[in-house]
Design a binder for these strands. Structure first.
Lengths: 249, 249
DNA sequence: AGCCTCCTTCCACTGGCCGGAATCCTAGTG
DNA sequence: CACTAGGATTCCGGCCAGTGGAAGGAGGCT
């Protein structure tokens, strides 16, 4: 009658991973109870798993008793080959771009219906932004997202147009209007946003094409206003994007 | 007689973590057999664990059949609070420093008897270096290491002086000589190396002190030669380090 | 073919995992 | 101070998931 009632049949490993993936950018520190709830595990089970993960260094206990991702996982995670060639090649160009504009610089690739930010540079006097390395943001409300979407296969574009979340009052949510913008992105060679992702932040972005001409990433910068020198920014971005493309294998 | 002979008594979780920690900077892609050997697990056991980890997204199978760290772990690992305040505060200063010098810029903290590189900027025309974010390099053969060691507690210094690995022909391996250098680091306010970590690379580094005056990190740059403008580099580094220190909470 | 290395599958045994329940903490409340 | 509420921790018997030696592919090289 007592003891283990319904062993759910999933492996320990997948449960442990479920615990780990309860952490995300908005939930970087969690209590045991939250972990159990989010991973859908009995409290006692979560307690044991979390304890073992902590002992192994995968999790660490913060001051308040909450759990955070541990240093060991940081080490291991850094080894993941997530766009490493692209990032290594692009890094110097991002730095030059930052030096020339002093604006926040973004490098993103498309991951299904999201823009995955693989690298980022933020300055002292830059406009505050929500993105971080590893962030996944909507394709329709960011500069890099629009570029990636404009160059995406037709089926991806169609699916993306089906659900346009209203992030700020200025987010473009009408499919027809966004479609027109995407067409212009292809002809103009760059995309812009005006407070469509976060208030007070505008952005410009250009595609990064490899030697075969395929768009593999988008390069963008975030500024307070585009009124002034949009032309100069587009030029700087284009030069950097070309440089990255040429350096890709 | 058959079946499971000696269940070693360790949990599945710790075994899974043992598998994950077989990966390091010099072994970013491993075959199943290598994993089993390095984690000291029977092949069949390693095979099952690796399979489950791969199914959970913690590992990915590369083209050649080797395993690499998966995207899921990259996501989770990025959430680890490893010097996040320091890194966020320092990032803009590193970028300015790169802009002013076009040299590779390093930010490192001390982790026991190693220098842990928490951030890094590498340019197009920079001297090639071995460090990456997450690298742990010796304290006695790197610029940032010497700074961190000079400001470390006495017991740490003593212990570090006991084993000075000869990395290149120019590495300082005599304890007395290194001790004299460390004393100078304290009076001069900066440390230098000349091809002591890798041939063809020299470095300058300065301490980053928080508001209480405690040295919490070291900031360094790597150049081909120090002959020319060591003074200018030290100045730029000092300014940046002061700025970081002032911005720390 | 023969040999070698690495990968995959099989299967009987058993000890580590499971999780409801009880207990221990805090912190907040009347 | 007693009481409550929410979370964290410990307990413990039952049982199945994990274990790993062995055997069987799959290539590659001589």
């Amino acid at each position: 009658m007592s003891g283990n009632a319904a062993r759910s049949g999933v492996s320990v490993v997948s449960r442990a991973m479920a615990v780990l993936t309860t952490f995300d950018q908005d939930h970087a520190r969690l209590t045991l109870t939250e972990i159990a709830r989010r991973a859908d595990l009995p409290l006692a089970t979560a307690h044991r798993l979390v304890g073992e993960l902590a002992r192994a260094g995968a999790l660490t206990r913060a001051e308040g008793g909450e759990y955070v991702v541990g240093r060991t996982l940081w080490d291991v995670g850094l080894l993941a080959p997530v766009q490493v060639d692209l990032r290594e090649v692009a890094a110097p160009f991002l730095q030059d771009l930052y030096g020339a504009t002093l604006a926040t610089v973004h490098l993103a690739v498309r991951e299904r219906l999201r823009a995955l930010y693989v690298d980022r540079l933020v300055g002292n006097r830059s406009v505050p932004v929500v993105s971080r390395v590893g962030s996944r943001l909507p394709l329709h409300s960011t500069g890099v997202g629009k570029v990636l979407l404009a160059h995406a296969p037709a089926d991806v574009r169609e699916q993306a147009l089906l659900s346009l979340e209203q992030v700020t009052p200025f987010t473009v949510t009408q499919p027809a209007r966004l479609q027109r913008q995407l067409t212009r992105v292809l002809t103009d060679g760059f995309a812009t946003t005006s407070e469509e992702m976060s208030l007070g932040a505008c952005s410009v972005a250009v595609p990064v094409a490899d030697r075969r001409g395929d768009v593999v990433a988008a390069l963008g910068i975030v500024v307070a206003s585009l009124r002034r020198d949009q032309g100069r920014l587009v030029s700087a971005l284009t030069v950097a994007a070309k440089g990255i493309g040429r350096s890709l294998a």
